[in-house]
Structures are given as C-alpha cells and as structure tokens.
Design a protein around this nucleic acid. Sequence first.
DNA 1: TTGTAAGCGTTATCAA
DNA 2: TTGATAACGCTTACAA
Lengths: 329, 329
Amino acid sequence: MKFNIKDVAQKAGVSISTVSRVVNNSKPVKPKTRDKVLDAIEELGYRPNAIARSLKIKHTKSIGIMTPDIANQFYPEVVRGIEDVANMYEYTIFLCNTDLNEEKELQYFAELEEKQIDGMIFMGNHVSDELHNEMKSAGIPVVLIGGRAEDIPSVTIDNEKAAQEAVEFLLKRGHSRIGVITGKMKDPMMGQARLKGYRNALEANKIPVEEELIVEGGYRYKSGYEGAKKLMLLNEPPSAIFVCSDEMAIGASRAILEDGFRIPQDVAIMGFDNVDISGKVYPSLSTIGQPMYEMGAIAMRLITKILHQESIGASDVVLDYEVIEREST
Amino acid sequence: MKFNIKDVAQKAGVSISTVSRVVNNSKPVKPKTRDKVLDAIEELGYRPNAIARSLKIKHTKSIGIMTPDIANQFYPEVVRGIEDVANMYEYTIFLCNTDLNEEKELQYFAELEEKQIDGMIFMGNHVSDELHNEMKSAGIPVVLIGGRAEDIPSVTIDNEKAAQEAVEFLLKRGHSRIGVITGKMKDPMMGQARLKGYRNALEANKIPVEEELIVEGGYRYKSGYEGAKKLMLLNEPPSAIFVCSDEMAIGASRAILEDGFRIPQDVAIMGFDNVDISGKVYPSLSTIGQPMYEMGAIAMRLITKILHQESIGASDVVLDYEVIEREST
DNA sequence: TTGTAAGCGTTATCAA
DNA sequence: TTGATAACGCTTACAA
C-alpha cells in the first residue's frame, strides 16, 4: 500500500501543509505536532513523491550524463567522479550511451529534457550544430568533458601540449624515429590535437615529420594492434611509438611482442589516458595521466555552482595532466 | 522560453485535450486540427513535461541501477547491457554506486523510490534484511544480478560449478598442486561458491585440500598481487593458481612475473569473469567467461516483462558460462 | 503555529 | 471529433 501526504495528515490529525513542513523542515512546527506527524509517517511508511514535488518546485535533483560508451575503459572513472559529487549534493544521475551517434545524442537529450533534468554533462568528440542548439535553448546548465563548444563550459586537459610532452619524453630518451598511432582524425581533441602535439615536438627538435610514421587509429585495442603491425612492417620501423589512447597502446604492445620485439628495448611505447589497467598490464604502460575522476568531479561541481548561481570563474577549466613513466619506455 | 501544453493549445486555437491527444496519439484527431497543433508545437519548440505526465499516469519510464562501483572492470559491461535494452523499451536509467555499503544502498533505494522509478536492478554481494524489506514493500519489480535473495528474481551463473570446471581444467592440464585466491569470504557468490567449486574439484579428484594453498583475496588487483606473492613464498609453491576475479588474476600474474617465474611454464593462472581487458593483457588470461552484457540485458528484459505482466517463467535465470583458454594456462 | 486553497503540467472522464 | 474539468501529490502564499 502506498500512502500520500493526505493519508499522513489524516492519520496525524493535522493539515497536509504541516505534514509538508515537517517533511521538508521548511517552517517551524510545534514539537508536539511534529512528533504526531513523524509517528504517522513512520507508521504508514510514508515516502514523499518526488515527482509531485518536482512538478511544483520545478527542479528534479537529477542530472543527465551522456557518454559514448560506458563499457570503454575511460568513462567509468569519470562517471564515478561525477556520481560521487552528484551524490554529495543529493543529485542523482541518468546515464546514457550515445555510441557517438548524433541521432542518439539528440534523442537522449530530448528525453532527458522532458524529464526535466537540472543539468547535463556531455562527453563526445564533437557537439553537432543541432545538439548545440538544443543545449542553448534547453535552459539548463550543460558542461562538456574532454571537448569544447562555443559558450558551453568545459573541463579538459591541454591535449596538444600533453601529446607534445609525451613525444618529447621519448625524444629525451634518445628516440628520434618515433611513430604515432592517432585517434580518429575527425575528433578534434583525441585526434587532431594530439597529432598536432606530435608534430610540434618533432618540429621543435628539428626532426622531419615522416608521414609513413603516422597511422590513423581510433580508440580501441584493435586499431592499436593493427597500427603497430603496420608500423613495424616499415623498412625502417620506429624505435618508439606514441599511441593516442592506452587501450590502443595495449593493442600495440601486444602486436609488438607478438612480432618478437621487446618492450622497451626494441621499441618503446607511450600511451595516453592512464586508464586504470595501464599500470597493471605487463609491461606496464608509460602514459599521459588524465585526471579522469577529477574531470568528472569538477564538471559536476561546475553544474552545482551554476545551479546555485555561485559565480563560476573561467568556464573552461583546463586540468593538469602528468607524464607517467613506467616499464614500456 | 519554456512553453507548456496550454501555450500550444492557445497558439493552435484548440483545447489542451486535443493537444494532448496529438502528442500522445491517443485518440483520433481530425487531420486538419492535428496539423495546426503540430505547427504550433514546432513553432514554440514545445517539449512535453514528463514529470507532470508521470504524476498523472503513475509511472516514469525510469529504472534504477545499483552497482558497487562502476569504475570496477566488471560492471560497465553489464550496465551497458541494461542500458541498451532499457533504451529499446524507452526507459532511462539512474545509476548509483554503493561501494557495497548498506547505508548507501538503503539511502539510494529510498531516493529512487521517491523518484518513482518503475523498477530496479541491483548488484551487490548481499541483500541486507532491511534492504530486502524495502524491496518487497516498494511495490516495484526488482531483479538481482549476480546474487540471490528470497522471492526476488535474479540472473546469475552457477558460480560453484564454474569454479569447479575452472580447476578441473587445470587438473586436466596436469596440475595437482593448485592454489586459489578467493573473493571476500562474506560474499556468497564470488567468495563462498567459487571456493566451494575449488574444493569440489579437488575432492572429486581425490586430491587433499591444503589450507595453505587457499588465500582470501577480495576483488581488486592488489589482493591478487599479494595473494600470489604469498603463495609463491610457500615451501612448495603451486604450479597453478585459480584466481577468483580477472582483476586479481592480473595482479597475480604481475607478482609471478616479478618473482622471475614464467607464465604458464612455471605457474599457470586461471581467472574468472572474462573482463574486457583479460584477452588483451600479456600473457592473455585463461578465464571463466561470464556473459556480462547478457546478464544486464536479460535482467532489464525481465523488468520490462514484469512491468508488462507478461508471465515470466523461472524467475531465477542461470546463464551459461564458458571456460576460455588463452595464454596463461 | 496551523490550515485553506491555488497551482505546477499533464491525462482522462464526461458531455457536447 | 472536440472541450471543460477533475484529478495526480505536492509546495506555498495567505489567512487565521
């Protein structure tokens, strides 16, 4: 049996307003009547209906998260970061998987907007024009993680600079013939920016960029595996490879080991992300550490700040990365 | 600017009822007036308010998921399975991380119940009495993944049998001194059942169970690492180790490799779960494959069935596992 | 300190 | 085929 505020009021012999007042602690209530109400609540096992409440007060304490695929190594950690601070502020989160599909992004956005979410955190490699419109017109705070879009707060790292440091790290270790397995080139951050960093590093060190050393990957294991195979088949294979995601780097390591090369003696591998597993595999992966948990936590914190109209300083927050040296270099 | 059904009605010059009818396609509407309404909707960019709708119709098309920690290797895949079928049936999911903490479980359950979720999928190693009460009295379908509780539908695999097969697999490869790194012993499935399977296998093969070969782990990498170190320090170390989760198995592998042993020549490793990464690490992990995605998908399917009152057959569905042979054995 | 009543944006019943 | 209107369960002026 499900009871509502009216039942409680009846049972306690008071009006529904006073029940509301004790439930929300919103106005003083005489201790005695408060106790009566509390007893009634207890006895009936009353649970307030948050939907009805939301309808009235016009917010839901729910926020949406759109992630390309929670089953990918990178996202669970940031979602955890989001959820922890969401929970702290008593928000609860809707999770959506978009598969980077614009249709799905749009459809989910509409769905969540109808459900009156108070805010939304978006991860994806690009905000389409249509989605951008939706975001602007929805009238709720949106923050991006790992990407940028006009007029929308974001939390990122400096991918270009990080990538540059990654290959400079390799350069300093004496490598001069360095391959790269990139992200998808249509992805501005994971694709373009990181490749740009690679080029920067070589140019800054007066090393000519050879196109044959650049192979386009994606994000997943398989493309890393294939990319490395390709690279090692070159007449003059690289002595080090900068792989633009850890998952690909693990694939690349496997390919290299299979081909009978040693890591890092024959070829060094530098990853990107510092996904949980990268320190645990053998050989453990040197990589660029992205503060995934923090990115999520900060994004969510941003949302709460906007919601509470605390001034938010710079609305594009750029977090520090770190270069992590492990066994693969 | 946010518009509601009234605004649309006004703009279209009809009553709100007919707007509702065209929005929901619930009753015939003359094509001409339908068009007027559609135009108004378009023009205003009207989005129905699902909260108001839910208040009236008494369901929300939202379901809750409680997971110990989405950042653990195992869960993202099952959550993905859940979400995919949820999406198919137009449900959207609330995600919660409990850290296996009973307080948090209870608190989240109440929160979601107040938000009027239509159903709930629970993952955790145990359903406390209090939570069990809540589940029964909430009046919504609940299904468990990876665990059992009285009167609550569940989807699992036969952990005991799977574990037994895992060690029998080792036995058949000629190992007779087999160590085990267990899950937490207070966990009925990952802890108790899998250890039971280990004992069964040895007993069935008339091999005495030696307590020194049994070390209690947990779930994470570190306990696998430490467990293996301990085992390899024995006067007579095992020639194979059955590790009750892949993440621990990866930790164990690392420990063994560090100690200068080879896998599988000196010691074979058998994991459990078949987490995404286990086929990608080096050496790749032989393991028991749990159909994680399917577990999620089926659990969610169960929810929709109950919600639509389709009869559900057996309410405890036990899925097949598979023993996967890779490089570590 | 408490109660009455209006209203949040829908759906659905009933009449027209 | 359409329109008034009463819920749905709550919060919040306003009055007492």
